[in-house]
């Protein structure tokens, strides 16, 4: 078990889990406010292609990340306008966001398809800690975004559980009518968290090209990660720390393929690429049953537009 290839597999699993975790944490915030956004895949793609273009022309890593994230947020803003203000169906709006995002990303990315990116996030070694066997390379020699993601998951847990603002957010997702009558600005909180969700999805996409594989390809860059993130939120019962753990598990399962190939075990890649969609189907099964939804802990008002009943 202590062969170098396995340690490399674990270290790579952590990196592979980061974009899933970022996107899923963002979606978790949006869903906790009661808004389902099926556009995660689209927002990640836009984030990735914009980050690549910015990175390619400016050479600045952090600028690429920020602009990519904002691009995801801009797309999410469209979703917020449609679903919160205009009360459109969240499912239809989210799906069209993914289709739109995929199309736009393909168009913007045409000129850079297959090009390498000169700059990417580098791992930072934590001095002597990084020299520890196994744990060193897995935990103490990663890039800054990996650590930021872990901090983010902890921060969101704390925000939801302990702060007054988090309580307000949860009430908006559970019972917007109650929140409204207690003087909480339902629409404002929904807008805010949907857009933050988009920013995180954009950042997740940006990290794919800045931290994982420094090139852009329409099929290969996200390859269904957005759908995995969506499913993960449900499987994690809308709990940030479980999202983080699940993301690393998914990262591991994706990296396992390469490891097994290197060991001479041949697993068809097609099986793996089916995974996101299988998970999506499983999630839709949960989604379809009101009872099941309540039991897995879905916010009670998730998916429902809020209309104040005027007398």
């Amino acid at each position: 078990m202590n062969d170098g290839a396995f340690v490399a597999l674990l270290a790579a699993s952590v990196v592979a889990g980061v974009p899933i975790a970022l996107a899923a944490l963002g979606e978790l915030l949006a869903e906790r406010s009661g808004v389902l956004n099926l556009g995660v895949e689209g927002m990640m793609l836009i984030g990735a292609v914009v980050a690549f273009q910015v990175g390619n022309s400016s050479g600045s890593l952090w600028l690429s990340l920020v602009v990519g994230a904002l691009a995801g947020g801009a797309l999410a803003l469209v979703h917020a306008v449609l679903t919160v203000t205009l009360r459109a169906s969240q499912i239809v709006s989210g799906l069209s966001l993914t289709i739109f995002g995929t199309g736009l990303a393909t168009f913007v990315g045409k000129s850079i398809e297959g090009l390498p990116l000169a700059t990417d996030f580098r791992a930072v070694a934590w001095g002597p800690l990084a020299d520890l066997p196994v744990v060193g390379p897995v935990l103490f020699e990663q890039d800054p975004i990996v650590y930021a993601t872990v901090v983010l998951a902890v921060a969101i847990t704390w925000y939801l559980r302990r702060t007054r603002a988090g309580l307000s957010l949860r009430s908006v997702g559970e019972s917007p009518a109650t929140a409204d009558s207690m003087g909480i600005a339902v629409a404002r909180l929904r807008y805010l968290h949907v857009v933050i969700g988009g920013v995180l999805a954009g950042a997740a996409g940006a990290y794919l090209v800045l931290g994982q594989v420094p090139s852009w390809s329409q099929d290969g860059t996200t390859s269904g990660l957005g759908w995995i993130a969506l499913a993960l939120v449900v499987f994690a019962s809308w709990e940030p720390m479980r999202v983080l753990l699940g993301a690393f598990l998914f990262g591991f399962s994706r990296q396992l393929n390469f490891y097994l190939q290197a060991k001479g075990v041949d697993v068809p890649a097609e099986l793996l690429s089916m995974l996101p969609y299988l998970l999506t189907i499983a999630v839709l099964v949960v989604w379809g049953s009101r009872d099941l939804r309540r039991r897995v802990g879905a916010p009670a008002a998730l998916g429902l537009p809020y209309v104040r009943d005027e007398r």
């Binding site: 302990r162 702060t163 007054r164 603002a165 309580l167 307000s168 949860r170 009430s171 559970e174 019972s175 009518a177 109650t178 929140a179 009558s181 207690m182 003087g183 909480i184 009670a300």
Partner: peptide, 24 residues
């Protein structure tokens, strides 16, 4: 009633109360 079913009694009582500190 204007109550959030999944919240505890205490959470419902302070929901939206501007007098609460940011950290409950």
């Amino acid at each position: 009633f204007r109550l959030v079913e999944r919240f505890t009694v205490a959470e419902n009582v302070v929901l939206g109360d501007p007098a609460q500190p940011a950290l409950l």
